[in-house]
Protein backbone atom coordinates (compact mmCIF):
# COMPACT_ATOMS: atom_id res chain seq x y z
CA UNK A 1 0.00 0.00 0.00
CA UNK A 2 2.84 2.34 0.92
CA UNK A 3 4.49 1.43 -2.36
CA UNK A 4 1.35 2.43 -4.29
CA UNK A 5 1.11 5.73 -2.40
CA UNK A 6 4.78 6.46 -3.15
CA UNK A 7 4.20 5.87 -6.85
CA UNK A 8 1.19 8.19 -6.88
CA UNK A 9 3.23 10.91 -5.16
CA UNK A 10 5.93 10.89 -7.84
CA UNK A 11 5.91 13.93 -10.12
CA UNK A 12 5.11 13.45 -13.80
CA UNK A 13 7.87 14.31 -16.27
CA UNK A 14 5.95 15.69 -19.24
CA UNK A 15 9.01 16.89 -21.15
CA UNK A 16 10.67 13.48 -20.86
CA UNK A 17 7.45 11.86 -22.14
CA UNK A 18 7.35 14.28 -25.07
CA UNK A 19 10.99 13.61 -25.91
CA UNK A 20 10.30 9.86 -25.79
CA UNK A 21 7.46 10.23 -28.25
CA UNK A 22 9.56 12.37 -30.61
CA UNK A 23 12.46 9.90 -30.46
CA UNK A 24 11.76 6.60 -28.65
CA UNK A 25 13.85 6.30 -25.48
CA UNK A 26 15.19 9.86 -25.69
CA UNK A 27 13.18 10.94 -22.64
CA UNK A 28 14.88 8.28 -20.53
CA UNK A 29 18.27 9.36 -21.89
CA UNK A 30 17.52 13.00 -21.00
CA UNK A 31 16.56 11.86 -17.49
CA UNK A 32 19.95 10.18 -17.07
CA UNK A 33 18.89 6.60 -17.80
CA UNK A 34 21.10 6.30 -20.84
CA UNK A 35 21.29 2.53 -21.16
CA UNK A 36 17.57 2.07 -20.54
CA UNK A 37 16.71 4.71 -23.13
CA UNK A 38 19.11 3.28 -25.71
CA UNK A 39 17.62 -0.20 -25.29
CA UNK A 40 14.06 1.12 -25.60
CA UNK A 41 15.16 3.01 -28.73
CA UNK A 42 16.65 -0.16 -30.22
CA UNK A 43 13.44 -2.05 -29.51
CA UNK A 44 10.95 0.46 -30.89
CA UNK A 45 12.94 1.71 -33.88
CA UNK A 46 14.04 -1.86 -34.65
CA UNK A 47 10.40 -2.94 -34.80
CA UNK A 48 9.31 0.05 -36.88
CA UNK A 49 12.17 -0.14 -39.40
CA UNK A 50 11.74 -3.91 -39.66
CA UNK A 51 8.08 -3.29 -40.48
CA UNK A 52 9.03 -0.88 -43.25
CA UNK A 53 11.64 -3.33 -44.55
CA UNK A 54 9.18 -6.23 -44.61
CA UNK A 55 6.06 -4.45 -45.81
CA UNK A 56 7.48 -1.43 -47.60
CA UNK A 57 6.58 2.18 -46.95
CA UNK A 58 2.95 1.35 -47.84
CA UNK A 59 2.68 -0.28 -44.39
CA UNK A 60 1.94 3.19 -43.01
CA UNK A 61 -1.08 4.77 -44.65
CA UNK A 62 -3.06 7.39 -42.74
CA UNK A 63 -5.86 7.60 -45.30
CA UNK A 64 -6.45 3.97 -46.23
CA UNK A 65 -5.66 2.31 -42.88
CA UNK A 66 -6.62 4.96 -40.30
CA UNK A 67 -7.18 2.52 -37.41
CA UNK A 68 -3.76 0.95 -37.89
CA UNK A 69 -2.26 4.42 -38.18
CA UNK A 70 -3.58 5.40 -34.74
CA UNK A 71 -1.41 2.62 -33.29
CA UNK A 72 1.54 3.37 -35.57
CA UNK A 73 1.48 7.07 -34.67
CA UNK A 74 2.58 6.09 -31.16
CA UNK A 75 6.08 5.59 -32.61
CA UNK A 76 6.33 9.34 -33.12
CA UNK A 77 7.27 11.54 -36.10
CA UNK A 78 8.85 8.58 -37.90
CA UNK A 79 5.32 7.23 -38.51
CA UNK A 80 4.21 10.56 -40.00
CA UNK A 81 7.38 10.64 -42.12
CA UNK A 82 6.65 7.15 -43.45
CA UNK A 83 3.07 8.17 -44.23
CA UNK A 84 4.35 11.28 -46.02
CA UNK A 85 6.82 9.16 -48.02
CA UNK A 86 4.01 6.79 -48.95
CA UNK A 87 1.75 9.64 -50.07
CA UNK A 88 4.42 11.62 -51.91
CA UNK A 89 6.36 8.78 -53.54
CA UNK A 90 4.05 5.82 -54.14
CA UNK A 91 0.65 7.46 -54.46
CA UNK A 92 1.91 10.11 -56.88
CA UNK A 93 3.73 7.60 -59.04
CA UNK A 94 7.15 9.20 -58.54
CA UNK A 95 8.36 5.71 -57.66
CA UNK A 96 6.81 2.81 -59.53
CA UNK A 97 3.86 3.24 -61.86
CA UNK A 98 0.23 4.13 -61.33
CA UNK A 99 -2.22 1.64 -62.80
CA UNK A 100 -5.99 1.41 -62.77
CA UNK A 101 -7.53 -0.86 -60.19
CA UNK A 102 -11.07 -2.28 -60.34
CA UNK A 103 -13.45 0.37 -58.97
CA UNK A 104 -15.58 -0.50 -55.97
CA UNK A 105 -18.46 1.40 -57.54
CA UNK A 106 -18.96 0.45 -61.25
CA UNK A 107 -20.17 3.97 -62.05
CA UNK A 108 -17.13 5.64 -60.51
CA UNK A 109 -13.84 6.20 -62.26
CA UNK A 110 -11.23 3.50 -61.72
CA UNK A 111 -8.85 4.56 -58.95
CA UNK A 112 -5.15 4.64 -59.69
CA UNK A 113 -2.83 2.63 -57.45
CA UNK A 114 0.92 2.17 -57.37
CA UNK A 115 2.41 -1.02 -58.75
CA UNK A 116 4.40 -1.12 -55.49
CA UNK A 117 1.20 -1.55 -53.50
CA UNK A 118 0.35 -5.17 -52.80
CA UNK A 119 -1.97 -7.13 -50.57
CA UNK A 120 0.55 -9.84 -49.76
CA UNK A 121 1.26 -11.41 -46.39
CA UNK A 122 4.48 -9.35 -46.18
CA UNK A 123 2.42 -6.18 -46.42
CA UNK A 124 0.17 -7.27 -43.55
CA UNK A 125 3.11 -8.30 -41.39
CA UNK A 126 4.75 -4.93 -42.08
CA UNK A 127 1.60 -3.13 -40.89
CA UNK A 128 1.57 -5.27 -37.74
CA UNK A 129 5.27 -4.57 -36.96
CA UNK A 130 4.78 -0.80 -37.30
CA UNK A 131 1.61 -0.87 -35.20
CA UNK A 132 3.30 -2.86 -32.43
CA UNK A 133 6.26 -0.44 -32.54
CA UNK A 134 3.80 2.40 -31.94
CA UNK A 135 2.05 0.62 -29.08
CA UNK A 136 5.37 -0.31 -27.43
CA UNK A 137 6.47 3.32 -27.69
CA UNK A 138 3.35 4.29 -25.75
CA UNK A 139 4.75 2.05 -22.98
CA UNK A 140 8.11 3.84 -23.30
CA UNK A 141 6.41 7.26 -23.14
CA UNK A 142 4.48 6.27 -20.01
CA UNK A 143 7.72 4.98 -18.47
CA UNK A 144 9.44 8.30 -19.19
CA UNK A 145 6.47 10.11 -17.65
CA UNK A 146 6.82 8.30 -14.32
CA UNK A 147 10.53 7.47 -14.08
CA UNK A 148 12.45 9.68 -11.64
CA UNK A 149 15.48 11.60 -12.86
CA UNK A 150 18.67 9.61 -12.22
CA UNK A 151 20.88 10.85 -9.39
CA UNK A 152 24.49 11.33 -10.43
CA UNK A 153 25.89 9.93 -7.18
CA UNK A 154 23.92 6.66 -7.47
CA UNK A 155 25.22 5.77 -10.89
CA UNK A 156 21.77 6.29 -12.38
CA UNK A 157 23.28 6.89 -15.79
CA UNK A 158 24.08 3.22 -16.03
CA UNK A 159 20.49 2.07 -15.48
Amino acid sequence: MTHDTDQLDQPLHWMAALFSWILPGFGQIMAGHRRRGALAMIGVLGLFLSGLLIGGVDSVDRREDPLWFYAQAGAGPIAFAADWANASLLKTGKVGELVESPPQNPRAAAPMVSTFKTVTLASEIGILYCALAGLMNVVVVLDALKRPVAQLDTGGGRS
Binding site: G25, R36, L39, A40, I42, G43, V44, G46, L47, S50, L128, Y129, L132, A133, M136, N137, V139, V140, D143
Partner: peptide, 14 residues
Protein backbone atom coordinates in the same frame (compact mmCIF):
# COMPACT_ATOMS: atom_id res chain seq x y z
CA UNK B 1 10.91 -14.16 -33.84
CA UNK B 2 12.21 -10.62 -34.56
CA UNK B 3 8.74 -9.27 -33.70
CA UNK B 4 8.78 -10.87 -30.26
CA UNK B 5 12.44 -9.95 -29.79
CA UNK B 6 11.66 -6.27 -30.40
CA UNK B 7 8.73 -6.37 -27.99
CA UNK B 8 10.87 -8.18 -25.38
CA UNK B 9 13.70 -5.64 -25.59
CA UNK B 10 11.30 -2.71 -25.17
CA UNK B 11 9.28 -4.37 -22.42
CA UNK B 12 12.33 -5.42 -20.40
CA UNK B 13 13.98 -2.00 -20.84
CA UNK B 14 10.97 -0.26 -19.30
Amino acid sequence: LPLILGISITYRAT
